[in-house]
Amino acid sequence: MLPTGDPDWASVDIAVPRLPLRLPGISMAGFRQRAPAPVNIAMVAHPSVTLLIDLSDGEGLAYETDGRHGHGSVVAGLLPGGLRTGGQVGECLQIRLEPALATAVFGAPDLTGTVASLRDLWGHGAEQAENALRAAASWDERFTLATDFLARRLGARPEVDPEIAHTWRRTLTHRGRVQINALADEVGWSRKRLLARFRAQLGITPKRAARLIRFDHAAHLLATGHAPAAVAATTGYVDQPHLHREVKSFTGLTPSAVAVAPWLAIDRTTWPH
């Protein structure tokens, strides 16, 4: 079982790359807890595949979801359910990847709704990556090493269809407020083909992806103090009850509870939106 307790972000050092990464669609941040203490954080659904690399000594990172428990580095796909992470975490590297890239990096065609040990996906390569990152002298060196690991894996496997990658990025750019027919016309495919290929390669329908991306935008506005009614209007929900239903669908929480979620609180500092 995970311990109880939210993280004290004031005791956490956060590092982000000082220069843009050379891999578009991938972002990273490093965390170091100055005084290691047990934490328990609920992950909020995000429109990316999230890799948490455990760089701690001792027990390190722990996670649980749907009654399953694990330790060590973990990959959380789109919509990972009730995933909670924590334990005695000293240092951790968090990497977010666009789904189209994650398919190639992890060699899995569908990570939606899944939580998997990095060692199950990378085998011995996971331990090699962890050891190299743990031994690095600085976070800048770690970011460079992680970028190299990911670039090699991207080069070894084909990515998804360019049309699928384009559809995802257009949906992301427009924060979920897109029309499937218009996207199909952009890539020169029929609506039926786009729906089938998108789901086959990313494990989620374009409509569900658009809902997730729009929810993410709304959740971050809530976390920065915007009122639910204003957020609903800004993000294109019909009304405040519609926003409430969507937040409940993705998190099981109310908008007011999502607004103070620790997972989103640190996003304000670490992941510029």
Rank of each mutant, 00 (worst) to 15 (best):
A129W: 10
V105G: 07
R142D: 01
E159D: 12
A76I: 00
H166F: 13
F106V: 15
R169P: 04
G155C: 07
G113W: 03
R134Q: 14
W168V: 12
P158F: 03
S73N: 11
L118N: 08
L97R: 04
G81P: 10
F149H: 04
H124R: 13
A165W: 06
T144L: 13
G86F: 00
G82Y: 13
E163L: 12
L121T: 10
T103V: 15
S138G: 07
G87W: 03
G113V: 05
G72V: 04
A108S: 15
F149M: 03
G82V: 11
D66Q: 08
R68K: 04
L83C: 06
D66C: 02
G72Y: 01
V74E: 03
T171I: 13
G82A: 14
E159G: 15
A116E: 13
D66V: 02
A156D: 14
R169C: 09
G81H: 11
N131D: 06
P158D: 05
G87M: 04
E159F: 00
S138Y: 06
R152I: 12
W139G: 11
H71A: 15
R153S: 12
S138D: 08
F143M: 03
D161E: 14
R96A: 13
A129K: 00
D66I: 02
A165I: 11
G82S: 15
A165M: 05
A137L: 09
N131A: 11
R68T: 11
Q128R: 14
D161P: 01
G87T: 07
A129F: 02
G87V: 13
S138H: 07
P99H: 11
A137F: 00
D120M: 11
L150W: 06
Q128F: 09
G86V: 07
Q88L: 15
L83P: 07
F143P: 00
V74C: 05
E98H: 12
D161N: 12
P80F: 09
R170T: 15
D161R: 14
R68Y: 06
A104Y: 09
D120C: 06
A76C: 06
A156G: 14
R153E: 05
L133A: 03
S117K: 02
L79R: 11
V115Q: 05
G107A: 03
P162Q: 04
A102H: 03
D120E: 15
G77N: 03
L154A: 09
D140K: 06
Q88F: 10
T147W: 09
R157K: 04
R153H: 09
E159Y: 00
A104N: 12
A146P: 00
A146M: 15
E130N: 05
A100N: 07
R157Q: 07
G72R: 06
L101D: 12
G72I: 06
Q94C: 10
G67E: 09
T147I: 07
T114F: 11
A126Y: 10
C92K: 10
R152W: 09
L150K: 00
V115M: 04
A156R: 14
P99N: 12
L78W: 08
